[in-house]
Simulated assay, not measured.
Amino acid sequence: MKYRMILLLCLLFFSLNTLTACSQEKTMTDTTNEIFQIIAKQNLSELEHWLAKSPNLELKNQKGETPLMAATYLNQVPMAKLLIAAGANVNTQDGMLNSPFLYAGASGYLEIVKLCLKAGADYQVFNRYNGTALIPACEKGHVAVVEELLKDKTYPINHINRLG
């Protein structure tokens, strides 16, 4: 009898969590869904049309990603360029504590790194390991990104992340 009660409570708990997650997904606005669908389709003309409406560039999806972060994950340089030109923040972090600048540096996306640097990349915004863009760029051998970051003599080259 105890086993059945525990099993029933577990099933009830799982069902409630699933319903909560589903209801949270439905709270995203049509505008939020629209922009992330445009980015997923990598449709530059639709993005231009969306930007012409003067939207909120800091909308976030369920992962905490902004439109610029979503475009950066796809290495969509033309989209990133449009979003940054429209005023998207290159330092906004998502749920994984990635920002467009940090992720582009870690992934070797040199063109997006350059765009982020011109748009005011903040060297005091750190990733989930409390690290800068330079650390994973070095680790992964993204030499061009490392060279670009080191052009700025104020870049914190001696920063140590929590991994040491």
Rank of each mutant, 00 (worst) to 15 (best):
Lys41Pro: 01
Tyr155Glu: 09
Gly164Ser: 03
Lys153Cys: 14
Ala88Gly: 10
Leu134Thr: 04
Cys22Arg: 15
Leu8Trp: 12
Tyr155Val: 11
Ile157Arg: 00
Thr32Asp: 11
Tyr3Thr: 12
Leu74Gln: 15
Asn158Ala: 02
Pro156Thr: 04
Ser45Pro: 00
Arg128Gly: 11
Lys114Ser: 00
Met28Asp: 09
Gly95Asn: 00
Ser15Gly: 11
Val145Glu: 05
Ala71Met: 03
Gln24Leu: 15
Ala71Gln: 02
Leu8Ala: 15
Tyr3Ile: 10
Asn91Tyr: 12
Gly87Phe: 13
Lys60Ile: 15
Lys41Asn: 07
Asn56Gly: 10
Asn89Gln: 08
Gly64Arg: 10
Asn33Leu: 13
Glu148Arg: 06
Lys151Trp: 13
Leu8Arg: 13
Gly164His: 03
Val113Pro: 01
Tyr73Val: 15
Lys41Ser: 08
Pro78Asp: 01
His142Met: 06
Asp30Ser: 13
Gln42Cys: 08
Val125Trp: 06
Ile160Asn: 00
Ile39Arg: 02
Tyr103Arg: 13
Tyr129Cys: 05
Gly131Lys: 00
Gly108Met: 06
Leu115Gln: 00
Leu134Ile: 04
Gly164Thr: 01
Thr92Gln: 06
Glu147Trp: 10
Val77Glu: 01
Phe13Ile: 11
Ile38Ser: 03
Met1Cys: 11
Gly95Phe: 07
Ala40Cys: 06
Ile39Asp: 02
Thr18Tyr: 11
Lys60Phe: 14
Ile84Gln: 05
Tyr109Thr: 07
Ile84Arg: 07
Ala104Phe: 14
Gln37Phe: 10
Glu48Cys: 06
Leu47Pro: 00
Glu139Arg: 03
Gly141Ala: 02
Ala144Asp: 15
Gln124Asn: 08
Ser15Ile: 05
Asn56Cys: 14
Pro100Cys: 10
Gln37Thr: 14
Asn127Met: 07
Leu44Glu: 05
Ile35Pro: 01
Met28Pro: 08
Ala21Asn: 04
Lys151Thr: 07
Leu44Cys: 05
Thr92Asn: 04
Leu83Lys: 03
Leu68Met: 10
Ser54Pro: 05
Ala52Gln: 04
Val125Arg: 05
Ser54Phe: 13
Val90Cys: 03
Ser107Tyr: 12
Lys153Asp: 15
Glu48Gln: 10
Ser99Asn: 06
Glu25Asp: 13
Leu82Trp: 09
Ala104Thr: 11
Tyr129Phe: 12
Ala21Phe: 12
Asn158Cys: 00
Leu44Gln: 07
Gln124Gly: 05
Leu12Glu: 11
Asn17Arg: 10
Thr31Ser: 15
Thr27Ala: 15
Thr31His: 13
Glu48Arg: 07
Gly87Gln: 07
Lys53Leu: 14
Lys153Trp: 15
Met1Asn: 14
Arg162Gln: 02
Leu9Gln: 14
Arg128Phe: 12
Lys2His: 05
Ala21Val: 06
Asp152Asn: 02
Met28Glu: 11
